[in-house]
Write a protein that binds this DNA or RNA. Sequence first.
DNA 1: CTTTATCATGAAAACGTTTTACAGAAAAGA
DNA 2: TCTTTTCTGTAAAACGTTTTCATGATAAAG
Lengths: 335, 335
Amino acid sequence: MSSVSIKEVAARAGVSPGTVSNVLNRPEKVAAATRERVEQAIRDLGFVRHGSASSLRAGHSRTVGLSVIDIGNPFFTDVAAGVEEVASERGYAVILGNSSGDRLKEERNLLVFAEQRVRGVLITPSGPDLTRLGQLKERGINVVLVDHPAERSDQCSVAVDDVVGGSTAVAHLLEADPGRIAYVTGPLAVRQCADRLIGAGQALAAAGRDPARALEEIEMSAMNARSGQQAAEKLIAEGRLPDAVFCANDLLALGMLRGLLQAGVRVPEDVSLIGYDDIDFASASAVSLSSIRQPTHRLGRVATELLLDECDNPASHAHQQIMFQPELIVRESTR
Amino acid sequence: MSSVSIKEVAARAGVSPGTVSNVLNRPEKVAAATRERVEQAIRDLGFVRHGSASSLRAGHSRTVGLSVIDIGNPFFTDVAAGVEEVASERGYAVILGNSSGDRLKEERNLLVFAEQRVRGVLITPSGPDLTRLGQLKERGINVVLVDHPAERSDQCSVAVDDVVGGSTAVAHLLEADPGRIAYVTGPLAVRQCADRLIGAGQALAAAGRDPARALEEIEMSAMNARSGQQAAEKLIAEGRLPDAVFCANDLLALGMLRGLLQAGVRVPEDVSLIGYDDIDFASASAVSLSSIRQPTHRLGRVATELLLDECDNPASHAHQQIMFQPELIVRESTR
DNA sequence: CTTTATCATGAAAACGTTTTACAGAAAAGA
DNA sequence: TCTTTTCTGTAAAACGTTTTCATGATAAAG
């Protein structure tokens, strides 16, 4: 219960509290001898700086807020791991908020972040309304958008090109010259799903096909394995199996794979299948899954570096909207 | 950049700062009329309480630290989701630390927690040395152990009985009366792996078998799908395929499954296979995986409730060492 | 009416840092 | 020797809350 304060350290080292503070924050400003003495006192007493007092006086904390849509999704987990890594390296603490796709919860998270006076916020917005984020900015809290390109140039963002990703996936499927292709997706209101569809259309057009006829959209309400399997069962029941399937994420694809195999459909001989995200489990399934890899971990790392740079060097900081390119990973599920 | 303070709110409402503070913290202590006036002023000015100032003066913050071994593992992700849920409900912020199984990084996380003067810490210790946690306790920071039974009775913990889990898994395999059983595990220095092995032995003994002869241990250095597949390949290459396999987690089991299927071994006809954790992907694999389910999400929820209870009612709080029971989930991979 | 109890509010002192302005001492230049 | 400059270090005032104690006002009791 005994909390050692800077005063006690000062007393033991025979200096003033101000000097201890200098040792902590600007070691070069204090003579080597005294510094050593203070550091010894700190060790002896087991002093640890009171973060709240520090940020109260200094006007800013050493924490960042991270708000993700679904911490249970391996995609966001990887992002979070990258964020935590960089933050930890630079002595920042990460406050985690899980919005579950719920606007209200997202608002509540942002409020908590504001109360904590976080230095900055990393957020994968759960909807298209970004006005709230502008308000944070007015409060002096920097914001970096994750997996969402910024619309304004006074803001940093890190994203992956979903149009290219969709196009790459379908172009790969087209190599085997399939007849009909199905696009199994989550709600098209989700930007990522919509962009991947646009990309798919582009690839078809580039191959001289009419997207409206060659591509069938199957929109599911959830983006999990169960939905994927339902989609498979539906296609089979209706007897209109396509030659190739592009799923908007790997969870859908894994469900689809299972549904197909259970019905005796061979993958990739009868149906070619490609997913999106390249989660770890994509390579572990019975027929390993071709997929579109995103630099998930880097997404988190770079976003955090951008944010911390903006915080620590506000003068020299140049806002950047970074767009990564996805990568095709070919495995067994495609011809 | 304009940070509205309690003073400005007080001025606008025509009261003193103390009264505003009362409205914030003990609304019942202030007359309805003034309270309404203050609340209006808060809304008008967009005031949000300064957490640092608050915790500095109050002597405690509204944050908890969460240190997990691997945020990339679905098990811990589920735990984290449970933690975040409860913390968020009760107005607490969660500071996330990922130790990656690294003692040093774990120490660093605990230091950050200490600096932030978190109200309490939830931790899945990455090793058997808990002295550091005692030190936190002396600092007035409560600690709840997650997925690790507490050794001392002055501490709360939430865990799942791994001995019972191991025993349940093997008892289920024994129903089909297999000859040889293999236990594919991570490092036996990991308590969970060791306990599950003990349970396996108990089940064999209860069935009148000699554990030393009926059970083969295959210890891998990592607990991921790749290791599982390697184990499968090794068993096949050496031509000593067991009749049943118990994997210490689902990632190992998924890898094992893939290795077996690729070699033309039928599951469950030739080899019965059971995993552990019942992660989401267990039901999505080509042959859906039998597994031992742990109440992962609840683990996180209950641990957090225990911690917050200890924080908010230190007087009436009774330390508890909670042990959940795992549950057998039978799917296609076992006879 | 006075006295006492009850209640709502205010004034001011913390909490543990950081930071600004400044003072002494030592070193350097004249 | 005297001024100027450079170093080190100090004293004290913040930062925005919470909380204790006191105070005045109102209501209840005598």
